[in-house]
Amino acid sequence: MTNDHSREVLGKHGARAQRRPAPSHSSVASQLSESLPVVNVDSIAQNTGNPVITFDHVTKIYAAQPSKPALEDISLHIFPGEFVFLVGHSGSGKSTFIKLLTREIKATQGHIYVADEDLTTMRNWRVPYLRRNIGCVFQDFKLLPNKTVFENVAFALEVIGKSRHVIRTQVPEVVRLVGLQDKLDKRPDQLSGGEQQRVSIARAIVNRPPLLICDEPTGNLDPQNSRGIMDLLERINRTGTTVLVATHDREMVDNMRRRVIALDRGRLMRDQDRGVYGFDV
């Protein structure tokens, strides 16, 4: 991923976004997706090309609970440029799904491919290079309290050995993208929750990964900040980045009308384009 390429993609999608009609979000809150008016979201990627993520009959069984698989026989594809919600109750396997993708844990059975690389047979020393292609955002932000916004974002580039020149040009650019250009010198405790999450997103995308994974990114935020974060994720998605969001936020999923993958007790219950949250809480 070179800078030039990314800018080109950004420009193209930016132009397309202007042609887009205003989405009618208001009436979709808690109804079934079939009865809803079709939302015109033309930036949903066509399922062409090689998938970014492929799950091939994946089962994960933790040693602590041998009789109760955390994930059972999951098969799916996620294609480049998609925006996917991963929904489900607590304990349904969302976190396991994400940990498998970043290869914090290994699948018990089946194969997982990220960008044509098989994670189940990947050598340990290659894992860091896999993670450079996956941005991660978490509910608890995981920012370093003694570093400024700039330093927090720069840290991600520093530790993968990027030169100072790259850091000096790339960090302000991505901080501007998340709208915090005025707060470069602030520390995390001087920022609001929403702003901290923006810093965390900036850190996740500063290396321009083709895949962005968010685990409950709005879990700690009020609805207004949540909407801001989701808008940001949508904008990032429009630059061509594949975005996977695990969430509990029913309203957000129902409003955005993107692909929804629903997990329940480790099983894949539903995989639906332009779907809704769909669980009765």
């Binding site: 020393w125 290079y129 993670r131 292609n133 991660c136 995981k142 370093l144 991600a156 530790v159």
Partner: peptide, 17 residues
């Protein structure tokens, strides 16, 4: 350990950590 967790997250190589 916080820094180490983030280094692993963003793909710092084992040698670098």
């Amino acid at each position: 350990r916080r820094e180490i967790a983030i280094m692993r997250l963003v793909g710092a190589s084992n040698g670098f950590i």
